[in-house]
Simulated assay, not measured.
Amino acid sequence: MRNKMPKIIAIAAVLGGGKTTITSCLTQVLNNAKTLYFDEYDLEGPDDVVNWVERGADCNEWNLEPLISDLRNLISSEDTEFILLDYPFARLHDKLKNIDLTIFIDTPLDIAMARRILRDYSNKNAEAILDDLSLYLPGGRSGYESMLKTIKPNSDLIIDGLLPTEEIVNIICDRIKS
């Protein structure tokens, strides 16, 4: 019989903020860690994300049942000590309040945008980059700013996203141990 429940750790950041990199590194460092990535799910959410942000970005408008189902399965798994969630909402979704530690990687928006362009457009032409930027300026940026106003202040640990990956991972590991 299992002695204790796994610790659930959620890592958030704006797009390009480093959450997937940090989550992947933590999976390698922590013993018996399993990971769920929000972006790997085809979740039902608002059709118009810009409008959703303008209306207050209520996280409960997202149907997280597939993610929650996988989370329940991991919680009941005998060999899991940590469950890492690459997940944007901290504890703001009513069905995911049982997170033990929420982390926000605070990456400047210009750095996050540069990372996104390098990551997502390395094999595309300049027109694709310009199309993305033309969407970012009138509406997409407000989504980034919304995270800074809602997710960041509702996180247990805020880490400077300009720190080297190894240092960020060490800070998180130190917090987990304390």
Rank of each mutant, 00 (worst) to 15 (best):
I111F: 13
S76D: 13
P153W: 03
A126F: 15
L74F: 10
D110N: 15
I111P: 02
L85P: 01
L135M: 11
Y144W: 14
L162Y: 11
K124W: 02
S76R: 07
L96A: 10
L162H: 12
I159V: 09
L137N: 03
K152R: 14
S142G: 05
L96P: 10
D86K: 06
I111D: 00
E127M: 10
S122N: 05
E78S: 08
L96T: 10
E78D: 08
I99S: 05
L137G: 03
R115Y: 06
L85E: 00
K124S: 01
D79L: 04
D120Q: 13
P108T: 00
L84E: 01
A128G: 06
N125G: 05
L92W: 02
T80Y: 14
L163I: 09
S69T: 11
E127H: 13
A90Y: 07
F104W: 12
F82N: 05
L118G: 14
M113V: 15
L148D: 06
S76L: 12
M147W: 12
A126L: 13
L148R: 13
D100C: 14
L84V: 14
R91H: 04
P164T: 04
R72Y: 12
I103C: 05
D131F: 05
L118C: 15
D131L: 07
K95S: 13
D156T: 12
K95Q: 15
L157I: 08
D86L: 05
G140K: 04
A114K: 13
H93W: 11
T107Y: 01
E145M: 12
L163S: 07
D100I: 15
D106A: 06
I129E: 02
L96G: 03
E81T: 03
D156K: 06
R91G: 12
D94T: 14
D160W: 02
